[in-house]
Design a binder for these strands. Structure first.
Lengths: 232, 232
DNA sequence: CCAAAAGTGTTCCGAATACACCCATGA
DNA sequence: TCATGGGTGTATTCGGAACACTTTTGG
């Protein structure tokens, strides 16, 4: 074991993870927030968080709390930032590792789990006061999501397996919070090789019906690495 | 204090910071590495690291270790990633927060401090084996530096107050590791508003001498926020 | 006078942008 | 038949990329 432990001022610290969860609902980008369960500040709005157990990695802890909430594994997740200020938590010295994730709001059990925890989806421009430095975390996460979305195909993580171009367009409008020209969007996406056209149509949103697509996983991986300009 | 502390498996953990230090030497991007001083693995090459004291923030800890080494404050520094795998350190469970920084190799005292610690600058393609997961950290840092350098004016952090366009070009060639057309580079940079031309010339590298510039701090800050395409 | 680095303009191409109408269909 | 969302093509502009010669001066 490390000699450092012998020194008085080098002491282990509590480590937490907090998770900024984004989803698209009603063509708007939303944030999932929770009623905090532990003191201090129990009952206030908060991000989903938990302490890191000593027998799990930090990443695993983040996956665990998301799993406990959503029942889903393999959720898209990015480590955001370590928040390590001295006074960030009045309950004691806690260092928090923030993650953000994108989830498909319509997925099985999600509705149920969200209801059974005290949670709700909120628009990004109507976020209530959050405990501790959670507001900072959310702002950094939004900036990070937008930055990432400009060059990596993350928009797809918010959609179901099969989706229409209109849905995809709305996801990007939700992320960037401004309107996108549909002709340019279609042209670019269809030429990107990211989309595999299906023969089925989705008739739920229009009389005419619109073609469904799914992702080309191969191209997806490639563009994730190389980067691609998703600025519109 | 948190109830969580009562649970057996939620225990405080040791937190360390590790710092990936980049500098430009002989027109090449280099990494500063150190002989590790603590067991286990004392004597092996390593990044500069230290434990986080309980009376300092994580960011402060990172600044402290850089200050102890270089004697410099206000060094450009970015938090990179939290490394929290269970088995990353054979000496015990340690979570490490990695930072990378850019320093001006020619600065006062730096040479002295580097020599007095057992440290050396190495080319990125000749990095020896490093302890623990430090190699991963370096690779992530290089990727992060290149990504950042494409859109933020970070190249300037590696140069002295006054510099020539040739020096700046070489910094970018060093970061991106490929040659850049000097005419396009000059055009773009001179139009960016980032450079304030001085009347002095630097004659150390050529008979003709080349004009010196300094940064326009105002534009620098602005472009840091808004982003600017530094891809060449 | 020559070697070595500094400095300078133009053309070309591709990608992003702006923009307006027809189509299919269920109600 | 009409309201609703789906689908399509072209012209323009801007920025990035490619490219070669002249200038200065210390040695």
């Amino acid at each position: 074991m490390y000699l450092a432990l012998l020194y008085e001022n080098v002491r282990p610290l509590l480590i937490a993870v907090d998770c900024i969860i984004f989803g698209v609902q009603d063509t708007e980008l939303k944030l999932l927030i929770f009623k905090r369960e532990v003191e201090p500040l129990a009952g206030a709005w908060s991000l989903l968080g938990s302490f890191v157990n000593r027998d799990e990695s930090v990443d695993t802890a983040a996956e665990r709390i998301l799993f406990e909430l959503t029942g889903l594994e393999d959720i898209y997740m990015e480590q955001l930032h370590c928040y390590g200020a001295l006074d960030r938590d009045p309950g004691g010295r806690v260092v928090s590792i923030a993650y953000w994730s994108l989830i498909r709001v319509d997925q099985n059990h999600l509705e149920f789990n969200v209801r059974s925890h005290e949670a709700k989806w909120v628009s990004l421009d109507k976020i209530p006061d959050l405990v501790l430095d959670h507001r900072d975390m959310v702002e950094r996460a939004i900036a990070n999501l937008r930055e990432k979305a400009r060059f990596k195909p993350v928009g797809f993580e918010l959609l179901p397996e099969e989706f229409t171009l209109g849905q995809l367009l709305k996801v990007y409008e939700a992320i960037f919070d401004h309107p996108i020209d549909s002709r340019n969007f279609r042209k670019k996406l269809l030429n990107s090789g990211l989309l595999i056209p299906l023969t089925k149509k989705d008739k739920s949103t229009s009389k005419k019906g619109s073609f469904l697509y799914k992702f080309n996983q191969e191209t997806y991986r490639q563009l994730s690495q190389e980067g691609y300009n998703f600025g519109f």
